[in-house]
């Protein structure tokens, strides 16, 4: 029995199991919601629909739910991957994309767009993306003057504080309607999912994600220390610049489309590391799939918890993820 479990716990085995869980979860999530779609008709539904019930199910599934389920998986995967990359780069378990200003910059862009530009999605999304990119680049350039990661970290803290203050200022200037839009943006939501959005974001995320994952050897070398990684022949400065830019490119559009969804990027890589160790060759792909699972699950819970209404997903990720993570930490001590 023990041997069986040990063999099962190989990274490849875990990855296979996680993928299976993800597929099952996506099916479950696609079949349930405010409008119940029987699992038995689900597989055939995209191809044919007979009868009025089926026609409605089909349009709900194809136009509303499927893009959303896929988007949740995509966003979760990207957030977890970027979290893993940031934790490796900063050699710090608390690192996440937000650390270098990506989220705060995105929030500033979005809030600015809501207060100054009316807040249509067409304005909001690009503004949020530009905001996150500018904040990240600023943090990188300002932090470069210090040796190592400390400078980047400090610059990130300062950029976060400035963005936070400006968001506060915009909030103060906002009128009642804008204020309510701000609140909902800050809680995060996947309700904006649509096929056009997916068509743009999915290829982008896959390409940028793959570029990040290519640096897994450098991330492994960084586990030993920055000096050691340099001695092992990794051009650390170039790696750092590349990973930070890629992370901003990966997460920026997501933040723009979903608002602030916390916790997944921070915690999912830790979960995987606790289970499998820190070899990035396996940590990265497992984090990707686990992140997709986490956000798909959170979105599913958000949709079914208070039918026919919905909970903001940011609340669910923290409310479910937090205790789960604590439980896992407690388990490790035995």
């Amino acid at each position: 029995m023990a041997a069986k479990i040990a063999r099962w716990r190989t990274p490849a085995g875990v990855l296979t199991a996680l993928i299976a869980v993800l597929v099952l979860l996506m099916l479950l999530s696609a079949s349930s919601g405010a409008m119940h779609i029987p699992l038995s008709v689900l597989p055939g539904l995209p191809f044919s629909a007979e009868g009025p019930d089926e026609a409605l199910w089909r349009s709900v599934l194809m136009d509303v739910r499927l893009p959303r389920v896929l988007f949740a998986a995509l966003a979760g995967a990207a957030l977890a991957l970027s979290g893993a990359a940031m934790q490796a780069l900063f050699r710090n378990p608390l690192a996440e994309p937000g650390l270098i200003g990506i989220s705060a910059g995105g929030a500033l862009g979005a809030v600015g767009a809501i207060v100054l530009g009316g807040g249509a999605f067409i304005v909001l999304a690009p503004a949020a993306f530009v905001g996150s990119l500018v904040a990240t680049i600023a943090a990188y350039h300002l932090g470069r003057r210090y040796p190592g990661m400390a400078g980047l970290l400090l610059a990130g803290v300062a950029i976060n504080a400035i963005c936070g203050a400006l968001v506060g200022l915009f909030t103060y200037l906002a009128d009642d309607n804008q204020l309510r839009s701000l609140t909902f943006w800050n809680m995060g939501s996947l309700a904006g999912a649509s096929w056009p959005l997916l068509a743009g974001l999915a290829p982008w995320t896959l390409i940028v994600g793959a570029l990040i994952a290519r640096d897994w050897r450098a991330m492994n070398a960084l586990l030993l220390g920055e000096r050691e990684a340099l001695h092992l022949g990794f051009p650390l400065k170039a790696v750092r610049r590349r990973l930070i830019l890629l992370t901003a490119l990966l997460v920026g559009p997501l933040v723009a489309a979903t608002g602030a969804i916390g916790f997944v990027g921070l915690v999912v890589p830790h979960l995987v590391r606790l289970a499998l160790g820190a070899d990035h060759r396996w940590l990265l792909p497992n984090s990707v799939v686990a992140g997709a699972i986490a956000l798909t699950l959170a979105d599913w819970l958000a949709r079914i918890a208070v039918i026919p209404a919905e909970l903001p997903i940011g609340i669910v990720t923290s409310l479910v993820g937090g205790p789960f993570f604590l439980w896992l930490l407690a388990q490790r001590r035995h």
Partner: peptide, 26 residues
């Protein structure tokens, strides 16, 4: 301002009355 799309559809209404502030936008 952040109603659930599916929640509305699931009720199978034949009319939805909405304030111009209703959302999310799309």
């Amino acid at each position: 301002r952040a109603f659930s799309l599916e929640g509305v559809v699931a009720l199978k209404p034949d009319l939805v009355l909405a304030s111009d502030q209703a959302g999310p936008p799309q």
